[in-house]
Design a protein around this nucleic acid. Structure first.
Lengths: 224, 224
DNA sequence: GCCTTTGTGGCACCCAGTGCCAGGATCGAC
DNA sequence: GTCGATCCTGGCACTGGGTGCCACAAAGGC
């Protein structure tokens, strides 16, 4: 997947460690699930903070061995990411589904808003998830690898639309910029308990489109 | 420094651990220096690879204790970064020195090219340094924190020029985009043993300016 | 009941990073 | 020269993430 340039192969492999008991009903049954473990861990993170929670504690709280934890998550840092690879596929599909008449930045904006739509019941969880990823330094650092994969999805779409390769500068620049405003919108969302994520992303992307449409020196990113 | 939003305070503090023997000539003398340690470590990295080199080995090769190593570098990951904080100051100063007549993106491009100028004798070292930072996954992840600080320099400049705050979307987007093309240009540079970094950055930034000046759907990032 | 498959988890180990603290080296003061 | 202040060194012990190995437990098929 993606250009060989920015891709860190380890990142992709580390994501889904050993998808235990994929479909075969033979053999010993799993003692728990990724999701269950995630919930247990999130509860501990909320109580003690991410750094102060050890893997031993998570495993103990989930009633499994420490060794087994690492069969569900390749690292403690991966806990908040859920099924991110699948999300990437969703985003890719959503972009592909955009009719060619829609301009590139519009298509990205629509896909982005769609992609980040969360059920009302899941909003609290998503907030905690993103709070961890974006505010815990170790997790933010770890996120680089995921973000690279995410940007590659954008870059590939832009490349396909503009007849370039994903590794070229314009696709890369746009992908980086889109990631940037997304992160900025998320930060804003985390700061404001009643903000609507979709709206923030929509506004943010419109401002980015403006920035791409006119030099920011003359029009400071405002929507006309 | 910078907006409270994207800044991870730990990043800044961790950078210069205990600047040993800053100027006072009293007390026991240092056994080595950051730079000497860096050279020793780079030699080992070249021979065995980054991940396969342990801190113990670096310390042993440098003739110091492992404990002492951590007084020169807060972590193994920080070795390739040299005196990055000072570099940031240099970049800031370089941007400030740009006359207001020069357009924002032009100013950033010029500063960027200047900032990344390396003496011919230092090119090989800089290559090894950036190869580590950009290609070793653990280091690339670690770099997030430094990149955030770096982007903030750009964002603040754009903000000052356009009458916004650095945390707003346009400055953040531009900063992300500039980082993106910089990384892309560096990747290109690392791939091509005879490429000129300054030229690559210049071209890349011109293409970015084009992308900002016209929707990439109609003009695919080419220079007119 | 056996065999195969699959998940579990204990054990031992590696490595990064830290707090503590007993030194060693160098100064200026006396 | 000796003393004390100052600063650097590095050993020791410890925490915590992550891994290889392997014995074992639980399930299904036959």
């Amino acid at each position: 997947m993606g250009s060989a340039k920015l891709g860190h192969p380890q990142a992709d492999e580390a994501v889904i460690p050993v998808p235990p008991q994929l479909s075969a009903a033979v053999g010993r049954r799993r003692a728990t699930s990724r999701q269950e473990l995630e919930e247990t861990a999130f509860a501990l993170f909320a109580a003690r903070g991410f750094e102060a929670t050890t893997v031993d504690e998570i495993a103990a709280a989930a009633g499994i061995g420490r060794r087994t934890f690492f069969r569900y998550f390749p690292s403690k840092n991966d806990i908040p990411w859920g099924a991110f690879e699948l999300e990437l596929d969703r985003m890719r599909a959503r972009l592909r589904a955009c009719p060619p008449e829609v301009a590139v930045m519009d298509a990205i904006r629509e896909a982005l808003v769609d992609f980040n739509r969360v059920e009302p019941t899941m909003v609290a969880l998503h907030r905690r998830r993103m709070e961890l990823i974006l505010r815990v330094p170790a997790l933010f650092a770890h996120s680089t690898l995921r973000f690279t994969a995410w940007r590659e999805v954008i870059a590939e779409f832009v490349a396909a639309r503009t007849g370039q390769r994903a590794g070229q500068l314009a696709p890369q620049a746009i992908a980086h910029a889109v990631l940037g405003v997304s992160v900025a919108a998320y930060e804003h969302w985390l700061d404001d308990p009643v903000a609507d994520l979709g709206e923030l992303l929509d506004t943010a992307m419109r401002q980015l489109a403006d920035a791409f449409g006119a030099p920011p020196g003359r029009r400071p990113g405002r929507r006309p």
